[in-house]
Amino acid sequence: MITQLIVNGLIAGAIYALVASGFSLIYSTCKFVHFAHGAVIAFSAYFLYFLFSMLGLNFGFSVVLAIIFASILGYGMNLIYKQFRKRKTSSVILLIASFALLIFVESLILILFGADVKTIGYIKIARGLEVFGAIITPLQIAIILISLVLLFLLFFFMKKTKIGKAMRAVSDNKDVAEVVGISSEKIYGYSFIIGSAIAGIAAILVGLEQNLEPMMGTNLMIKGFTGAIIGGIGSVSGAILGSFLLGFVENFGIWFLPSGYKDAIAFIILFIFLLFKPKGILGIKRSVEKE
């Protein structure tokens, strides 16, 4: 039983971590809450459904196109935000704009694909493997592995590459970044492209594991956002840590509570952190040292 809960927590955490890391990357450089990130996930999952299940294209090819689609969609949203930034609007307005984009894209999905649940159906329902008494399907193993590899690559990218370092520089101090010739607008663009590509990959994994529904983006975004808050918003590694924690707490929670309360657990944790530790686990340390 315990191993099963650990496995379930890992699977949920891996998905949340992919959502939260992209969202957190965008937040850390652009300094505003991009809720429409959820819409990028939902639309990319539907796009994969469209290419693979409706048009019947090759699966690998569809996956690559879906990831590119996610990047372009995210970058396109950034172009809209850019118009607001040019007018020097506040981050509250940007937040409202991102909600508008989220609702817009979800409505678009409703019009294009309808409200009924869709299944991509690439992977036939497979019998789970037994690992230490827990049942896990090959797809779920793939989800965990792909997430871990991706998150490691993201970490490496931020620490070792020039663009990654420039992203951290803009996140840290945008004005100084401009002074040394780093264009923050360009870096915002990169963050949206990379963050949305990760969202696209999350969309594919979720799309294969679960059914598609138009509001799936909002649901995932709430989990990803909670993960990011737990870990410390603006810190990508914090977001990953927080997401896995959330995955575990949710799954261990239903040991004590009826499974219908699973989503409520995320909200309760979100409230607790916002009230008592708004800077999250990793956020608090730095802010003390800065003072």
Binding site: A177, V180, K290
Partner: peptide, 25 residues
């Protein structure tokens, strides 16, 4: 080159990374 007012460094980057960012272009 310009050095702004008030000890403006990238505080979350290492010293070496700060220097590398100086030579970003």
């Amino acid at each position: 080159s310009y050095v702004p007012q008030g000890r403006q460094v990238f505080s979350d980057l290492t010293v070496k990374e700060n220097l590398e960012m100086g030579a970003f272009i």
